[in-house]
Amino acid sequence: MVVFPTCKINLGLNIIAKRPDGFHNIESCFYPVGWTDVLEMVPAESFAFASTGIPIPGDAAGNLCVKAYQFLQKDFSLPPVSIHLHKVIPIGAGLGGGSADGAFCIKLLNQVFALNLTVAQMQEYARRLGSDCAFFIENTPVFCYGKGDQFRDIQVDLSKYYIALVNPQIHIGTAEAYAGITPAEPERKIEEILALPIERWKEYLINDFEKNIFANYPGIRQIKDSLYTHGAVYASMSGSGSTVYGIFEKETDVKSLFPEHYQLWQGKL
């Protein structure tokens, strides 16, 4: 069986406070986008995991798909499977691609083996994988808070807009992204800003990671500026990574604006 884990963008991202456990409390709106990996699972004599596409750093044993299988196998004595992940979504790019892979693996195991897990149960397994993994279980727009693993409904519909995502293939690690961040309550809440017309978002909707990352990587700031120059109604860096997205009122081809080694995805939201 094959599924297609999507990525997400952050509509605003505020770093609220440092937590006693070493993580940070954040506020953001997660919004799913159709740039996908490919995840295949088939029965096997023994468990196996392989990946193609973008090389995934680290040992395969640490991959979230492997961990997802191990969590569920421990509780449900699952038979062995062979998992093949074809990696397309850039890594360390603020798009949550790895988190999506782990969450979609949970959903796939639930379906293949008829485990009858509820959404809430799958989300709990996903939270054990990582802070934003639980979002991808339902994979619908939400306001998130806490470590990025707690959600409440939010009315944001961008279905009439188009999006371009531009990744300069710069990997930004979590520690680097948080270096120099001073947590603080925002002047305006993200939920209030997103209730405004999208044309007003540029005035108020910010990603707290941009200030330091733009200073360290001026080319990433230039991507954002270029998207605005070419008609984006809103543009921002996504998450703590290097991907910048632009939201457009009409379909806009931005490939010619950026070097060939950049990774791009364009489509309907």
Rank of each mutant, 00 (worst) to 15 (best):
V2A: 03
I15F: 11
F23V: 01
I26C: 12
S28L: 11
C29D: 02
G34F: 13
V38P: 01
L39S: 03
E45Q: 10
S51R: 10
G53T: 06
P55I: 09
P57V: 09
P57Q: 12
G58F: 10
A60P: 15
G62Q: 12
C65F: 00
C65D: 01
C65Q: 01
Q70C: 05
F71R: 07
F76N: 07
V81Y: 00
V88N: 14
L95S: 05
C105Q: 10
C105P: 03
K107R: 15
L108A: 11
V112A: 08
F113N: 06
A114I: 06
L117I: 02
T118A: 13
V119P: 03
V119D: 13
A120M: 12
M122P: 03
Y125F: 10
G130K: 04
F136M: 09
E138H: 12
F143W: 14
F143V: 02
D153C: 05
D157T: 01
L158F: 15
S159F: 07
Y161N: 06
Y161D: 10
Y162K: 08
A164W: 07
I172H: 06
I172N: 04
E176F: 02
A177T: 01
A177I: 03
Y178G: 01
Y178C: 01
G180W: 12
P183K: 08
A184H: 11
E185P: 05
P186R: 12
P186A: 13
P186S: 14
E187V: 06
R188H: 13
R188G: 04
K189D: 13
I193P: 06
I193W: 12
I198Y: 13
E199I: 05
W201V: 02
K202D: 15
F209D: 00
N212Y: 09
I213P: 08
F214L: 06
R221W: 13
I223Q: 09
T229Q: 15
G231S: 12
G231W: 15
Y245E: 08
F248D: 06
E249K: 13
K250D: 13
L257W: 15
L257M: 10
L264I: 12
W265K: 03
W265T: 04
W265L: 05
